[in-house]
Design a protein around this nucleic acid. Sequence first.
DNA 1: ACGCAGCAGATTGTTGACAACTATAGGAGC
DNA 2: GCTCCTATAGTTGTCAACAATCTGCTGCGT
Lengths: 231, 231
Amino acid sequence: MALDMSELEPVSRRSTAEIVADRIRTAIMRGTFPPGTQLGEVELAGRLGVSRGPLREAMQRLVAEGLLRSERHRGLFVRELDADDVRDVYIARTAVERAAALLVLAGDRGAAAARLTGALGAMEAAARAGDAVALADADHDFHAELVAASGSPRLRRMTDALLVETRMCLAALQETAPPAPDLLAEHQTLRDAVRDGDAHRFVTTLEAHMTDAVTRIVAAMPVAGGDLTGA
Amino acid sequence: MALDMSELEPVSRRSTAEIVADRIRTAIMRGTFPPGTQLGEVELAGRLGVSRGPLREAMQRLVAEGLLRSERHRGLFVRELDADDVRDVYIARTAVERAAALLVLAGDRGAAAARLTGALGAMEAAARAGDAVALADADHDFHAELVAASGSPRLRRMTDALLVETRMCLAALQETAPPAPDLLAEHQTLRDAVRDGDAHRFVTTLEAHMTDAVTRIVAAMPVAGGDLTGA
DNA sequence: ACGCAGCAGATTGTTGACAACTATAGGAGC
DNA sequence: GCTCCTATAGTTGTCAACAATCTGCTGCGT
């Protein structure tokens, strides 16, 4: 692992809006604010100990990321994701992670494989402990590490946003319970493909991994226009 | 082309921050604010006829998009792009546009090819007229249309941001003057590949197109640490 | 009973002023 | 002459109050 230089960094270099945005983002990710809920400005500002000004700035940031939906003079709502959104998230993730993996394969594969192995260890531990949320965290970290290892800031930023949306889906579905052994095996295959420099195997496994996740999530989703009328 | 339903849309559905962000984004794109310039809040707010509140919200949005760099208690600066950034932008663009093209090839190729042909017409007209900025606009539109035709909102949003950064590079270089005939031929090849459903040809041409652009831009860039000292 | 005008409550959008911080220019001391 | 300290100007960060708008309810008229 890299050195921990956090002690040397200035304390308050991050703006208040950024900190507030991070807090709300994780809250949305964890399912604290289910999709569709309205976020009142005064209540959130009071709860976070800031005024409405910085909070509104943070909200605009989240709107730009696609996590919130803003209706003028009506309020801010947590974005609701339908089946098409789930498909779209995974299409984008596949595109970005594929590109990241190709960059990794052209670079330092050993270091990347080591980082992925670390994330794999966390997944195994979570799976053994039967901790579903920890498993989701480790899964999240695995893919984040993969893209981070590519060294591309833009792919990294895109993935961060997409992973948050992924967690939103999972949180809304209240633990879709993917079969842990299969999940582990697939990620192990990805790690091995990175280690061995096998691009074709990686891409094939990744695409299968993504389409599997989509079908599982979409199947567990409540039907969009859930009425049983003939139309 | 699709129907023009703009008359039916509500007048002020877009928030002020969004409008302001669009204005500043295009200004940065067009090179009105060169990279590195500080954007004073009071001056911008006065020029746009809004107060500092909405303007700061718009700024946060642009910071989230990666167009601005915020230094606490010091100000907002237009992001400066070095050679690594150029490479990164084109890596991300290649990843996104490749995925978009594969979606298009799996969908309505004819409609997509028609939209691309329209953008190609604008490129030809601009090339004939020798209008470099119009050519850049048409080039921009071509790639935007391609990704829009994929029907993926997320790929669309990513491309919008990446294309703005692309224009930033070009504007900073004061018309890098790519050979117009070659540019036209490459885009024609891309259109034909979409029309014929030739995925391999499309990807190959796209990658060549991107790497060409990178080498051309990087070569025309001022050297990062442009001192001639021995180090 | 049903529908609609008008009102009350709450929420968002905007503004101007105040506080905190940074950078620069000038002068005192060595 | 050079360095360091200080005052000052200009910037950003934050806040509380004001204005505009939407929603739900009440009461009247048909």
